Computed example of a mutant assay.
Amino acid sequence: MRETDPDRFSIRQWPDWSFWTDPLRGASELHRGRVRSVLVNGLMMGFLAAWVIDLSDGRNGAVRTGLAVGFLCCYALAYLLVLWFGPVALRRRRIAMVAVMFVLGALPALILGSPVYLTDLTYAIAIGLMLLPLRFSLLLGFGTAAAQIAWMAVKDGRVGWGVVLTLVAVTAILGVVYALMFTIGHLKLAREQVRRMAVDQERQRVARDLHDVLGHSLSTMTLKLGLARRILESSDDAAPALAEIRDLEGLCREALSDVRATVSDYRTVSLATEVAGAKVALRAAGVQAELPAAADGVAPELQGVFGYVVREAVTNVLRHSDAQRCSIRVGRDWLEIADDGTVPADVVPGHGLTGLAERMAVVSGSLEHGRGPQGGFRVLARGPATGGAA
């Protein structure tokens, strides 16, 4: 059986009014919406009031008139209750609600013996169009009109086409109205969901960028602070320590600028800049660095994302590794960062590596990480054009 799209209207589909109960809209707004629906439809029940006034002349007898008026009142009350509870009811309850509405609406006509009063089934037809698949509710509406025509022809020998036309017109018009209401309601809900997704994606972008920026900068700052402290503790010559502190001051300013640019979404990352920064950070940590002489051969569309890969991978070397050597190799559409540190048996990727994988996926690339062929830890980023191993 072919499944239909829940957000696309179909004559075979059970109407889904879940957008009425969107929890993010708030309970108070939902309550006000239901109240407005009941009040507006209550005002539209003047047609039933006209039937009650017409029956008050007593030509049908007190008993039959009382029963007919009583059922019309129950019919009106049931209509308002179904408007309140029907859209969120299960399918079986919806069928029961529609059946009760048709029974209550048809009883006055049966009691009075007049097919004209079947016209009040317009409210039951409206409920059917609201709660049942369109292919069933339309059959109910046109079937009611056909039954009224047949009853008039048998009883009176003629057909009052005016009242029949009322049933047919109500069925057709309300069918279109409810289809439009369904479509518009789900479009509004989809637009709200897109807006929330955009906000969430922006939050994730800022969080990922801040992690990449501050992780690398703070790791380098920590190393330089430790180096300056050791120089001051072991030597009376403060000049080397002052040089490290000056570098640290520059890193602080750069990190502050990067954070501001990240929040404003103006920050751009360059592979050449990140390789140069990796050289400074690795040297401060006493790690021998093997770096590419130039990064101009990398594809332009991969320069930025490869810069993030270098930044995060070198940060991991500084934080989590006891490596003595780190190498960075690049090709036109691949990048490899490897070290000779100790790799745990169970390496669990953190936020940094997860964020890198997401960045590579944006450019249709991939990211591999784990124990390298020569030992140590290796991160390998491949662009979309890479066919084999680097």
Rank of each mutant, 00 (worst) to 15 (best):
M1E: 05
P6S: 00
R12W: 10
Q13G: 10
Q13V: 12
P23V: 10
L24H: 13
R25F: 02
A27R: 07
R34P: 01
R36D: 00
R36E: 01
V38T: 14
V38R: 14
V38H: 07
G42S: 09
L43K: 01
M44A: 15
M44C: 08
G46L: 08
A49K: 03
A50K: 09
D54P: 08
V63T: 15
R64Q: 06
G66Q: 13
Y75H: 10
L81A: 14
L81W: 12
W84C: 02
R94K: 14
A96F: 04
A96E: 06
M97I: 07
M101H: 10
A109I: 05
T119D: 08
L121W: 01
Y123H: 11
M130F: 10
R135E: 03
G141E: 06
W151C: 00
K155V: 14
G157D: 09
G157W: 12
R158V: 03
W161T: 08
V163R: 11
V163H: 11
V164Y: 02
L165M: 13
T166E: 11
L167A: 05
A169P: 07
T171D: 03
G175D: 04
K188D: 12
R191C: 00
Q193W: 00
V194P: 00
R196H: 02
D200H: 04
D200S: 05
E202V: 01
E202W: 09
R203N: 13
R205C: 06
H211F: 15
G215P: 02
H216Y: 13
L225T: 15
G226E: 14
R230A: 10
R230S: 15
I231M: 08
I231D: 10
E233H: 10
S235K: 05
P240R: 08
A241Y: 02
L242M: 09
A243I: 07
E244I: 06
I245L: 14
I245D: 03
I245H: 02
E249G: 10
G250H: 12
C252K: 04
R253G: 15
E254M: 13
L256W: 01
D265V: 10
S270P: 11
T273V: 04
E274N: 09
A278I: 04
V280D: 13
V280R: 05
V280Q: 08
L282Q: 06
R283V: 07
A284C: 01
A289D: 14
A289L: 02
A293T: 12
A294K: 07
A294R: 06
P300G: 12
G304M: 11
V305H: 11
G307A: 08
A313H: 03
A313K: 05
A313P: 14
V314E: 11
V317C: 03
C326Q: 00
G331E: 01
R332K: 11
W334F: 03
L335F: 09
L335K: 10
D340V: 07
T342N: 06
P344Q: 02
V347E: 10
G350N: 12
G350C: 11
G355K: 07
M360V: 13
V362Y: 04
S364F: 05
E368G: 13
G388T: 14
G388W: 00
A390S: 01
